[in-house]
Amino acid sequence: MAFDPTTLKYDANGLIPAIAQSETGEVLMMAWMNAEAVQRTLDSGRVTYWSRSRQAFWVKGETSGHVQRLLEFRIDCDRDCLLMVVEQEGPACHTNRRSCFYTAVRDGSEVELMAPMAP
């Protein structure tokens, strides 16, 4: 059966959360996609998101060089969240860290789990 991006469950703004995960299982980031971003990602193999603040598409790594190449596109059981298994070049986070999930709460305090990567 051919995949149709319109069969996904988007929110009222036409967006669906998309989690980027490395091939080793590390969660890198979460961003938003609309149906066109989904199709662009599948067509190009380069992960394309929808920027809510800029109201524009952004191809991960287009300006930073920190490219995400799509390895596998997964849909959750409710069809309302996506998982992009990617090959990540360099940091995924705009703070220059490998992952956006670099802060944990331990014993009631925030703990930084990773420092920014060297340029």
Rank of each mutant, 00 (worst) to 15 (best):
I19R: 02
L42Q: 13
P17A: 04
S44C: 10
E62W: 09
E26W: 03
L42F: 12
E26A: 12
G61V: 10
R46L: 14
N13S: 15
R52W: 04
D43V: 13
G25I: 01
G65W: 10
H66D: 15
Y49V: 10
L42M: 13
R54G: 04
Y10P: 06
S53I: 00
G65I: 11
A18I: 11
W32D: 00
G25H: 00
A12E: 15
N13P: 02
D43S: 12
Q39I: 07
D43R: 07
D43Y: 11
H66L: 10
N34Y: 06
G65Y: 08
T48R: 06
V38L: 08
M29V: 07
E36D: 15
M30T: 12
I16E: 02
L28Y: 09
K60V: 01
V27H: 07
A12V: 14
A35R: 08
I19M: 14
S51I: 03
I16A: 05
V27K: 10
P17Q: 03
G61W: 09
D11H: 11
A18V: 13
V67A: 05
V38Q: 08
A56N: 12
N13E: 15
V38D: 10
Y49C: 13
A12M: 14
I16P: 03
L28K: 11
V59I: 14
R52K: 11
M33D: 08
S22A: 15
A37C: 10
G25F: 00
A20K: 10
L42T: 13
Q55H: 12
A31Y: 06
K60C: 01
K60G: 03
S64F: 14
S64G: 15
Q39C: 09
A31C: 11
R54I: 07
V27L: 15
W32Q: 05
S22F: 02
L28H: 10
T48Q: 11
G61M: 09
G45E: 12
G65S: 10
N34F: 05
D11I: 05
G45P: 13
I19E: 03
R54D: 06
S22I: 02
L15N: 05
I16G: 04
T24P: 00
Q21N: 06
A56G: 05
Y10Q: 09
E26K: 15
V67Q: 06
G14F: 05
L28T: 09
T41W: 10
W50T: 04
V59H: 04
P17V: 02
V38E: 06
E36G: 01
Q21M: 12
Q55T: 08
S64R: 15
V47A: 13
G25L: 00
V47H: 08
F57C: 01
D11L: 08
L42S: 12
Y49H: 09
T41Y: 10
Q55M: 08
Q21I: 11
